[in-house]
Amino acid sequence: MSLPPPPLPLSGVALFLDFDGTLAPIAADPDAVFLPEGGAEILRALSAKLGGALALISGRDVRDLSARVPADVWRAGGHGLEICAPGEKPEAQAVAAPQTLADAVNAIADSVEGARVEPKGEVLALHYRAAPEAGPALQAAMEKLIAGVDGYILQPGKMVLEAKPVHANKGITLTRLLDRPPFAGLTPVMAGDDATDEDAMEEAIALGGYGVKVGPGDSHAAYGLKNPAAVWRWLEAAAQ
């Protein structure tokens, strides 16, 4: 069992947070996931105490993410394909994945009852939480498909398989944000629950910061929290 993270310092630190599985429990229907009551206020207060150096980095499309979190914090959607500064509205339309790829991923999903595709701009997420026994077959089919698509990789996650551009990477996003104000020169802290978050945690550690793993599983992080409720207790303590 990982140690709980230390109290979050309010100076010299840049805080990066995943959304699904970290700030909100994962649900079978991604559209049903929202921040808990009071969560937006905690994020705003903590962002202010950190001098604005708080960013949410999510696999969700930035338009979707922005509808679920405060607009006055940094938001990076699509694993960082699009970034919005506080108060900035996302572009009205996302850049879509190639139609031939979308058609092929939908065909794979249609072959399994309970599987569904969530378009997230250039990212395509194939969810199989309602058909977990089909996971290995779906992954094999997706691996075969993505092997023939230039510029795309397959990212397995918790009951999801994501076809995403090679540059859609939370680690790359964390380092990009650290190159600009108000994050520049600060020590990064990254909290997340899934495989995509490990890239960002690894970068945070390499840059002298640390990671916080939410939930069970192997991780680069030295610290861990049991679930999103524990994450909120940690954040609220710093925001007060």
Rank of each mutant, 00 (worst) to 15 (best):
A168H: 05
S2L: 15
A195M: 03
I42S: 03
D31M: 09
T100W: 06
A137P: 00
L54I: 08
M201W: 03
E91V: 14
G217W: 08
D193T: 05
E198P: 03
D150V: 13
A137G: 10
A239D: 12
T196H: 01
E118H: 03
P86Q: 09
G224Q: 03
M201I: 10
D194F: 00
A109R: 03
A53V: 11
L15R: 12
D31I: 00
P25S: 01
A107M: 04
T22I: 10
L207C: 03
V62L: 12
E162F: 04
R60E: 02
F19W: 05
L65V: 13
A229R: 13
K226V: 10
L56N: 05
P188D: 05
A204M: 05
L124Q: 09
D199C: 02
V231E: 04
M159V: 04
L225P: 01
A45C: 02
Y152T: 01
P30M: 01
Q240N: 15
L54D: 13
L23Y: 12
P36F: 12
P5M: 09
E143R: 12
G12W: 06
I153A: 07
G21P: 11
P98G: 08
A200G: 12
E202M: 08
A125E: 10
P119R: 01
Q139P: 00
D103A: 14
G39N: 10
P36W: 13
E113A: 14
A102G: 07
A163K: 10
G87R: 07
G78T: 06
D199Y: 02
L54Q: 10
Y210W: 15
G78H: 10
L46S: 08
G171H: 02
F19Y: 14
F34P: 00
G39T: 08
P136G: 14
A67E: 11
G59N: 07
A141D: 11
P98Y: 00
E236T: 15
D110T: 01
L46P: 08
V62T: 08
Q155R: 04
W232Q: 05
E91I: 09
V95I: 14
A45M: 09
A163F: 11
E162S: 07
V231N: 02
S219C: 02
D72Q: 00
S2P: 15
A168Q: 05
T100L: 08
A141C: 05
D29Y: 02
I57Q: 07
V62Y: 05
F34Y: 08
H79L: 11
D31E: 14
G151M: 14
P70T: 04
Y210C: 06
E203R: 15
A221D: 08
E133K: 13
R116A: 15
G80F: 07
K213D: 11
T173E: 09
H127C: 12
G39M: 06
D199R: 01
N169K: 00
A184M: 02
L3I: 05
G59E: 13
D20L: 11
A97I: 09
P165L: 01
K213R: 15
R63I: 11
G148W: 05
V13T: 15
V33R: 02
L207G: 00
F19D: 12
A24L: 05
A27N: 09
G135P: 11
P70M: 03
A206E: 10
P4T: 10
V214H: 09
P132M: 06
L186M: 11
K158E: 12
P90M: 03
H167W: 07
L81W: 10
A168W: 06
